[in-house]
Simulated scan of single mutants.
Amino acid sequence: MPTIHEVACDFTAMLRAGHFVAAGDRYWADNVTSVEPADLPGGIRASVSGIDAARIKCAARFGAVRIDEIGIDGPFVTGNQFALFLDLVTFDASSGLRQPFTEIALYTVRDGQIAEERHFYA
């Protein structure tokens, strides 16, 4: 089983490469809980449980936009958790808008998998 540091580093590397869905598929536990500050468009609740619900939430969050730039600080590891500071610039083709997006993400790891993720937006 991978250590918390190994999970944190590999997950972060996958995000830096733009592989958000693949990172989730590799590291989300089957019963993962994913929490956003507020409900997402399309009726997606702020807090969802289960890998299928997390995949739907991820698609709702990033499916309509292209990520043009990504900067990640971290991972910052303590105990069974790690945090990332993410700075993104997204492009929405339907509106033509480029927008900066900043967040802190906190991940809790159990048995080598992400059991919970919490997202905090600036």
Rank of each mutant, 00 (worst) to 15 (best):
Phe82Asn: 02
Gln113Pro: 02
Arg55Phe: 00
Thr12Gln: 11
Gly74Gln: 04
Gln99Met: 05
Glu69Ile: 03
Arg45Ser: 09
Gly43Ala: 12
Ala54Cys: 13
Phe20Pro: 00
Arg98Gln: 15
Phe91Thr: 13
His19Met: 11
Ala115Met: 10
Val7Asp: 12
Gln81Ser: 15
Val32Thr: 11
Phe82Trp: 02
Gly96Cys: 12
Val109Asp: 13
Gln113Trp: 06
Gln99Arg: 03
Gly71Phe: 07
Ile56Gly: 00
Ala93Leu: 04
Glu6Arg: 06
Gly79Thr: 12
Leu86Phe: 06
Leu106Ala: 11
Ala23Pro: 08
Ala64Cys: 05
Ala83Pro: 00
Asp111Tyr: 08
Asp92Ala: 15
Ala13Met: 09
Met1Tyr: 07
Val48Leu: 01
Ala60Val: 08
Ala105Asn: 13
Ala53Met: 07
Phe85Ser: 08
Ile114Lys: 02
Ile56His: 12
Ile44Gly: 00
Gly96Asn: 13
Leu88Phe: 03
Asn31Cys: 06
Phe120Arg: 08
Met1Phe: 10
Phe120Glu: 09
Met1Trp: 05
Val77Ser: 12
Gly42Thr: 06
Leu84Ala: 03
Ala60Asp: 04
Glu69Asn: 07
Tyr27Ile: 04
Tyr27Gln: 06
His5Trp: 07
Arg98Leu: 06
Leu88Val: 01
Ala60Trp: 02
Pro100Asp: 14
Ala54Leu: 13
Arg26His: 11
Pro37His: 08
Ala22Ser: 15
Glu116Ile: 00
Asp111Ser: 14
Gly63Ser: 11
Phe11Gly: 08
Ile104Asp: 03
Val48Cys: 00
Val21Ala: 14
Gln99Cys: 08
Pro2Lys: 01
Asn80Ser: 14
Val21Trp: 02
Val89Asn: 07
Arg118Asn: 07
Phe76Gln: 09
Gly112Glu: 11
Gly74Asn: 06
Ala23Lys: 00
Arg110Ala: 14
Asn80His: 14
Val89Leu: 01
Ala59Trp: 03
Thr102Val: 10
Ala59Lys: 04
Ser94Phe: 03
Ile67Trp: 00
Arg110Phe: 07
Thr102Trp: 04
Pro2Phe: 06
Ala8His: 07
Thr102Ile: 05
Cys9His: 12
Glu103Phe: 08
Pro37Ser: 09
